[in-house]
């Protein structure tokens, strides 16, 4: 996945940097394969976002961040790109309103859910087809 897809609050390990001048600049800022980058916050209009790289807060536009390949820790996956199978919910990235809305579908931290199709989740309340915006804010761990 690319760095621009990592939800706010989560860290990811850099896998590769584009082979370009932009890539070289990113390297001198500390975006180096093997190091962890944390997504700190996003701008009011969603772009750019702030990343914690080594010891500094660096902003990147999503168009640039999309070129940075990253991996999440083992077993962790964002719902939007999860394959079919059983998962536990690790984190829901969103405010109170978002949490409440998820709660209604029985999507809560620690619950076990089943993915039965692309962005389609089965909980104890039923089967829900989620939009990309919501699905990309739910972090799962494969069971």
């Amino acid at each position: 996945m690319s760095l621009s897809e990592v939800p706010v609050g989560l860290s990811a390990k850099v896998k590769s940097i584009p082979d370009s001048l932009v890539g070289s600049r990113l390297i001198s800022l500390g975006f180096i394969p093997g190091t962890y980058v944390k997504v700190v916050r996003d701008a009011p209009l969603g772009d750019p976002r702030v990343y914690l790289v080594m010891d500094k807060l660096i902003t990147l536009r999503n168009d640039d961040a999309v070129q940075i390949e990253v991996v999440l820790d083992n077993d962790l996956v964002i719902l939007s790109s999860a394959q079919e199978g059983t998962y536990t919910i690790v984190e829901l990235f969103g405010g109170v309103g978002f949490q409440r809305k998820m709660h209604r579908m029985d999507l809560q931290k620690g619950k076990t859910v089943q993915i039965i199709g692309p962005m389609t989740v089965k909980t104890q309340r039923g089967v829900f087809k989620l939009g990309f915006g919501i699905a990309s804010r739910i972090l799962l761990r494969r069971v």
Binding site: V22, L26, P48, K56, L57, T59, L60
Partner: peptide, 10 residues
Amino acid sequence: EPSFLVLELP
């Protein structure tokens, strides 16, 4: 020419 923005938030 590509436009590229990196800002550091000190």
